[in-house]
Amino acid sequence: MENLSILTRLDYTLMIVAIGAALLGAVSGTLGTYAVLRRQSLLGDAISHAALPGIAIAFLLTGSKTPLILVLGAAIAGWLGTLFILSIVRLTRIKYDSALGIILSTFFGFGLVLHTLIQRTGNANQAGLDTFLFGQAATILESDVLTIGILGGIAIVIMLVFWKELKLLVFDEGFAASLGFPIRALDILLTSLLVIAIVLGLQAVGAVLMSAMLVAPAVAARQWTDKLSVMMLLAAGFGALAGVGGTIISSSASRIPTGPTIVLCATVVVGFSIVLAPNRGLLWNRLRYQRNKRNLKMLGGQLFQSEEQ
């Protein structure tokens, strides 16, 4: 009797964690789609690292460890980092990649300085930093699931409302501007949505691995479809799948951290998609190549012209 209740409670905890991880995977998969299409895959990496000083400052200012306040601090710092990167690129001849690298590492370094400062005053412990770096999916509570659901939901709803505008911005910025859409504002909106996805995801996989959660589901989804809406749905699905899969695998054996397992699950989905997806996949291409070669041989090379069509 006693045994059973422990078992169900365990399962319940696991279920909450799995739901939380699935939600996070879905949100970052959806919003990561635009990051991948805009070739800003690594902006997520920069934002997630740049968030650390924001968390530290939020804590120093308020003395509170309430997730919502820390998330707000993280979002502001991540945002500021993005702004710095874009300004450096716009105003100097330093290229995007270097600007990203500098902001990512130095913001993080500054965060580390603040963290050691907090640590010295005895207000925090090393665990706080570890959580930031690697996430702590295993400690997701019901209230966290609610936060993730509401904030992530709002981000996705906003994205859906401005679906047409954001799609045009990402596909053809110049044309969007010529139609009178304020591309600066839309760009800010899209980046803000990305920041929301990242600061939420930090909790599950941490700063170091966050970029994978944005990139992997979208890259995998891209292989299966040529339609943006389907790609986004698939990315959300793959993200959720990786979240649940990672949670279950890491809970099934001792000492397997959840965040890295989620990332590896997502990576497996990518590998699977790149090899097997119809039309685009490597295997498919290989087969098509050989079939064409065979056909060409059979027809003595005369097929060449009609193949072009």
């Binding site: 991948v36 070739r39 690594l42 170091v208 691995l209 990139v215 992997a216 890259v219 990332v263 490597l282």
Partner: peptide, 18 residues
């Protein structure tokens, strides 16, 4: 099938996770 930035963003988290 994958652009450069995404390729980097996929590879290092996977290896790091391992």
């Amino acid at each position: 099938l994958v652009k450069e930035d995404a390729a980097i963003g996929l590879t290092f988290p996977a290896l790091f996770s391992i």
